[in-house]
């Protein structure tokens, strides 16, 4: 156990910290190298509204804006302040929804995104991997070719087109599902059966669009993987040995082909935390993606930084967890 901690866990924790450090540092410097100055553009916006201000109040406003954006002081000072914000998860107030703090905005959006995206990801991963595995194993069957053709047709369609097409078809032409939103417009979230059902009803359409497109990818990658595994010696050997084909399919072929799928799943889980911008914009779903898009459109610097830092931490954590559980699913890792 001690050896495990030292040899396995310690290097991975160090790597985890280093990845987050580099990620946050890049997130700090990248916008500062860009020619867009958030303070100036904010000022331009204010002036564009037709307000006239005396130079003194302009200077004061610039000063307080700089403070809000974390742009006051020298670069090293800003950098340290940025880390302080990142560690305490306090990115100051949002600028467009002033004075709501960024953390409150994220807290409001995160559950919607997680609920929708994580569920859709789970369903599409399970279904896509299972169908891809079975279809890859029975490659010569008609239904397998049919499924593959379906996945191949679905996969290359740009997502925003299929999402809008589904919306038009299932919300407008056949109004089965609501057009958008996470719950009926004008109601307040409450904990009742009726409200939970209406949340589900609102989530089905965006969820379905995500599942269909995600499944195509998981299906194709699992199928490609399994057709390689089926040619492995251990599968041929088990077939010659009369091992039942169900066992060969699940314990031999799928069990080995699933390993890279698990890796991809964890990467995808990490990116759930940055939201699905297109889905949330098309279906007007109040998640992180919508929040991020609004923040980009309005130049809400603090919100952008908050979401970016959170997704850096989320992806790095997902990879760390993957690293820690991988020995459980692949015994070959345990010895190294």
């Amino acid at each position: 156990m001690k050896q495990f901690l030292l040899i396995y866990l310690a290097p991975r924790l160090v790597q985890y910290v280093v990845v987050i450090f580099i990620g946050v540092t890049v997130a700090f410097f990248a916008p500062r190298f860009s020619p867009v100055d958030p303070v100036e553009s904010m000022m331009a916006k204010v002036e564009g509204l037709g307000m006239t201000m005396d130079p003194e109040s302009v200077a004061r406003m610039k000063e307080s804006l700089k403070d809000l954006y974390g742009l006051g002081g020298s670069l090293p000072e800003q950098y340290l302040a940025f880390w302080k914000r990142a560690v305490t998860l306090d990115f100051g107030p949002s600028l467009t929804s002033f004075p709501t703090p960024v953390s409150a905005l994220v807290k409001r959006s995160l559950p919607w995104t997680l609920g929708l995206l994580a569920t859709a990801l789970g369903i599409s991963w399970l279904l896509g991997s299972f169908l891809g595995g079975v279809a890859g194993y029975f490659e010569s069957r008609k239904w397998s070719k049919f499924l593959e053709a379906g996945a191949m047709m679905m996969y290359p369609i740009p997502y925003f087109i299929s999402a809008i097409a589904m919306q038009i078809l299932l919300a407008y032409v056949f109004p089965i599902f609501p057009v958008g939103g996470a719950y009926p417009f004008g109601t307040l979230p409450e904990f009742s059966l009726g409200f939970v059902l209406s949340i589900l009803q609102h989530a089905i359409l965006p969820g379905l669009s995500l599942v269909l497109i995600g499944m195509g990818w998981w299906f194709l990658s699992m199928k490609a993987m399994i057709s390689r595994v089926v040619a492995e010696d251990y599968v041929t050997f088990a077939q010659a040995g009369g091992v039942s084909s169900r066992k060969i399919l699940f314990s031999y072929a799928m069990r080995n082909a699933i390993l890279p799928q698990v890796t991809s799943l964890f990467m995808a889980i990490g990116s759930v935390f940055s939201g699905a911008i297109i889905t949330e914009v098309v279906f007007n779903y109040p998640g992180l993606g919508l929040l991020l898009r609004k923040a980009i459109a309005t130049g809400d610097y603090s919100v952008i930084m908050g979401v970016i830092v959170m997704s850096i931490v989320a992806i790095a954590s997902a990879v760390l967890i993957l690293d820690l559980i991988y020995p459980l699913i692949d015994p070959r890792i345990r010895r190294k």
Binding site: E232, D233, Y234, T236, F237, A238, A240, S251, Y252, R255, N256, I329, D330, P331, R332
Partner: peptide, 11 residues
Amino acid sequence: PQGSMHVLNPV
């Protein structure tokens, strides 16, 4: 089969 490395299921 051949005395190769991959005849037994690795997992």
